[in-house]
């Protein structure tokens, strides 16, 4: 008797729940794909961004789903359903996939190779800084501190300014490791995707791509709004690190020429 009562109760509950669910407007689903190794900070960064996207999504009725595949299975994979692709792989595969998937944004999360920027593949977007950006940042800093042996990075776990503190804190809490360049690059790609979906109220890949190329004003928690160059490179400030400590930010004030983010890296496409 007791069991029957319980069963009836749970059936009633199920019925009510299903009614409620069907009454709700279906959430906008945004499917995204990561291609690359699983045990990697770029994937952790993407996951961080997706988690934040879903936090925002609960207020806008948007839901983000991330799938990840290994680069060895990438050539047979069906890409149609995804709003954007995040790549953490070799230069050759980056070029191949970006060329194949020309109607959607393909993010390069890992390769600093300058030739990928010179190539100016219209839908290939680099959130990771190029080698030339790093070199330019170091050269600027050396004009002020000639004996310095600083290296340039996109990010650093000790970075506190401009709410970098908050992002570092969230990431560390989730993964129990400090945020590095790859993780920032993955987070930035996922975060700008959800920012854009929120504004457009659409997950249409080509609409997202157009927005990235023409209207983006991304808050990467580095204190300045960011957008993409014609080369597909994300304009961004760099950090100069010496002995594990942040010693300066580039563009280096008073040295950078022009005194803007365009003093770092490749500006124009190769003819």
């Amino acid at each position: 008797m007791l069991h029957k009562h319980k069963l009836l109760k749970s059936l009633c509950l199920m019925f009510i729940t299903s009614l409620l669910l069907s009454a709700n407007v279906k959430a906008l689903e945004v499917r995204l794909l990561y291609v690359g190794p699983e045990d990697n900070s770029a994937l952790k960064g993407v996951e961080q961004g997706i988690q934040e996207a879903n936090l925002q999504g609960q207020f806008l009725n948007q839901k983000y789903l991330l799938e990840n595949i290994d680069e060895t299975t990438a050539s047979q994979h069906q890409f149609g359903a995804y709003s954007a692709i995040f790549l953490n792989t070799k230069k050759e595969l980056i070029t191949k996939l970006a060329t194949k998937l020309s109607d959607k944004a393909v993010f390069n999360l890992n390769s600093a190779d300058d030739s990928l920027r010179y190539a100016c593949i219209a839908n290939l977007l680099h959130t990771i800084p190029s080698n030339k950006m790093k070199n330019d940042a170091v050269q600027q800093w050396k004009k002020k501190a000639p004996d310095s042996s600083a290296v340039a990075q996109a990010w650093h776990p000790d970075f506190l300014k401009f709410a970098a503190r908050d992002l570092n804190k969230r990431y560390k809490k989730n993964f129990n490791v400090p945020m590095d360049d790859l993780a920032w690059s993955g987070w930035a790609a996922a975060k700008m995707t959800s920012d854009t979906v929120a504004r457009l109220k659409s997950a249409d890949p080509s609409k997202l791509l157009t927005f990235f190329k023409t209207e983006l004003a991304f808050d990467g928690q580095k204190g300045i709004n960011m957008n993409f160059r014609q080369t597909g490179q994300l304009r961004q400030p760099m950090l100069l690190i010496e002995d594990g400590k942040i010693v300066a930010e580039a563009p280096v004030r008073g040295v950078a020429n022009p005194p803007t983010l365009d003093s770092l890296g490749i500006i124009n496409c190769e003819k």
Binding site: E52, L55, Q56, F59, A163, D166, L167, D195, A198, D219, Q221
Partner: peptide
């Protein structure tokens, strides 16, 4: 909310 770009 600074990182979600909203007024709640």
């Amino acid at each position: 909310s600074e990182s979600t770009n909203m007024l709640h």
